[in-house]
């Protein structure tokens, strides 16, 4: 049990560090730690395949992506936190809400009576189709859940296309044109209204 408590403490600590770090790179590092702890937790839950996927995909790809973008943006002089904070105390209601929500969830979970659930077998066996193993996972993915798998592939393709469209071409800004006479004509409409108001 101590192990679990240590792990959970580490998880929460890294989470807090992520959201409260001063620099975004620190947040990324915090998040990395969070993902690793989470992978360990998955291992305790017999989800071996998922633990590996977590580390490979999440911390190995997504976080790297984050780092790349931070690097890209940091080429500017001071890319973050320039303007005045327009909602300085918004953390307070957020925190209060979070606390309440948390209490509700914990309260309901603790109160719920979980009965008669067959537990998965303990321990990591070497069997290829043990619960949570790669074989078990693969069978489920390619037979029962084939459709979601294919749709996910489509989703990823859409995401790639989207990213390319969004950030791909760096077009130069169109030249500022002189205001057309038509645009100036639209101005007088405001004045009579102003006269009415004044």
């Amino acid at each position: 049990m101590i192990a679990f408590w240590l792990l959970s403490f580490a998880l929460i600590a890294t989470g807090v560090f992520t959201i409260t770090a001063g620099k975004p790179v620190y947040s990324v590092v915090g998040l990395l730690g969070n993902f690793v702890i989470l992978a360990i937790l998955y291992l305790t839950l017999n989800a071996e395949f998922l633990a590996v996927i977590q580390i490979v995909v999440y911390s190995g790809a997504i976080l790297i992506l984050f780092l790349f973008v931070i690097a890209l943006l940091s080429s500017g002089v001071k890319p973050f936190d320039i303007g005045p904070d327009r909602a300085p105390r918004i953390g307070v209601p957020a925190f209060v809400f979070a606390l309440i929500g948390l209490c509700v969830i914990v309260f309901s979970v603790v109160r719920a009576a979980v009965t008669g659930a067959p537990n998965a077998p303990e321990g990591i066996t070497g069997q290829a189709d043990a619960f949570g193993s790669v074989g078990d996972f693969g069978v489920a993915l390619f037979t029962k859940n084939l459709l979601p798998f294919e749709v996910t592939a489509l989703l990823l393709m859409v995401a790639v296309i989207g990213v390319v469209l969004l950030a791909g071409d760096e077009k130069p800004a169109p030249p500022r044109r002189k205001p057309h006479a038509r645009d100036l004509e639209r101005e007088p409409i405001v004045k009579p209204v102003e006269k009415l108001i004044r």
């Binding site: 909602a87 918004i90 209601p93 957020a94 809400f97 309440i100 929500g101 509700v104 969830i105 309901s108």
Partner: peptide, 20 residues
């Protein structure tokens, strides 16, 4: 951020209803 907060509050109401 304020909109995000209001979304969160809305979800909270739903959650409270269904859970409690």
């Amino acid at each position: 951020r304020v909109y995000a907060l209001s979304i969160a509050l809305g979800v909270a109401c739903f959650a409270i209803y269904y859970v409690v």
